[in-house]
C-alpha cells in the first residue's frame, strides 16, 4: 500500500519524486482496484450493478450526500444500497484505519445450489407409492398400501411387506365395504 509516501509529502519532498517512486514502481495492477472516490485501493469494497468499484464507506458517504439523487459517480446510472455487491477477497483489510460510524456494507446474497433431482421427498422413483390421507380416525394409507402390493420393492418398506397378504386383503375388503356403505348406505 502507498500509505507511507503520502506522509512524506508534508515535508519538502517534491511531488515529482513522489509520483515517480509511488506511481511507477507501484504495481500497475493495483490501479485496477482503486476506489473511484478516494483513489486508494478499495477497502470494504463494493461494486455497483454498472460495474464500478468503491470503498463502501466512500460510496455510503456519497449516497448520504445526495440522498434524493443517487447516481453512480462514474457513469451516473441509478445506484442504491440494495443493489451493490460486496467483494470479498482473500486478504483481510484489518490493517487499515477503522472507519467506524459507517453502517456495515450490505451483505452478499447467497442462493442455494441447484441439486440435480427436483423432489427428494416424494420417492416417485421407487416402486412403493406411499400416500397418507386421513379423514378423522380412518388411516387411508392402509388402503393405498393395500393397493400397492403388485409393485412392492422388496428392498424397502419391509414393514408393510411383513403384514402379510391376509391382513391387507381383510382391510381391503373393509375399505370397500366402507366405501359402498358411504355411497349406497344413505
Amino acid at each position: 500500500m502507498n500509505r507511507k509516501p503520502t506522509t512524506a509529502s508534508s515535508s519538502n519532498s517534491l511531488p515529482t519524486d513522489n509520483s515517480k517512486n509511488n506511481g511507477d514502481e507501484k504495481d500497475k495492477g493495483d490501479q485496477m482496484f482503486e476506489c473511484n472516490i478516494c483513489l486508494d485501493t478499495a477497502k470494504d469494497a463494493v461494486i455497483s450493478m454498472c460495474g464500478h468499484l468503491f470503498c463502501w464507506p466512500c460510496l455510503h458517504q456519497w449516497l448520504e450526500t445526495r440522498p434524493n439523487k443517487k447516481l453512480c459517480p462514474v457513469c451516473k446510472s441509478g445506484i442504491s444500497k440494495e443493489k451493490v455487491i460486496p467483494l470479498y477477497g482473500r486478504g483481510s483489510t484489518n490493517q487499515e484505519d477503522p472507519r467506524n460510524k459507517v453502517p456495515p456494507r450490505p451483505s452478499g446474497q447467497r442462493a442455494e445450489a441447484e441439486t440435480g433431482s427436483g423432489f427428494g421427498g416424494f420417492g416417485f422413483g421407487d416402486g412403493s407409492f406411499q400416500v397418507s390421507i386421513g379423514i378423522g380416525a380412518f388411516p387411508f394409507n392402509l388402503l393405498v398400501s393395500a393397493f400397492n402390493f403388485t409393485s412392492h420393492n422388496p428392498s424397502d418398506n419391509q414393514v408393510e411387506n411383513d403384514r402379510g397378504p391376509v391382513i391387507s386383503k381383510i382391510f381391503l375388503f373393509l375399505a370397500f365395504a366402507l366405501v359402498f356403505w358411504m355411497i349406497f348406505g344413505l
Partner: peptide, 17 residues
C-alpha cells in the same frame, strides 16, 4: 496522518503532474 480529502488531493496532484 492526512485527512481523506488531503490524501486524495495529494494523489490528484501527483497524477496531474
Amino acid at each position: 496522518s492526512p485527512s481523506p480529502s488531503e490524501r486524495r488531493l495529494q494523489k490528484e496532484l501527483s497524477s496531474l503532474m
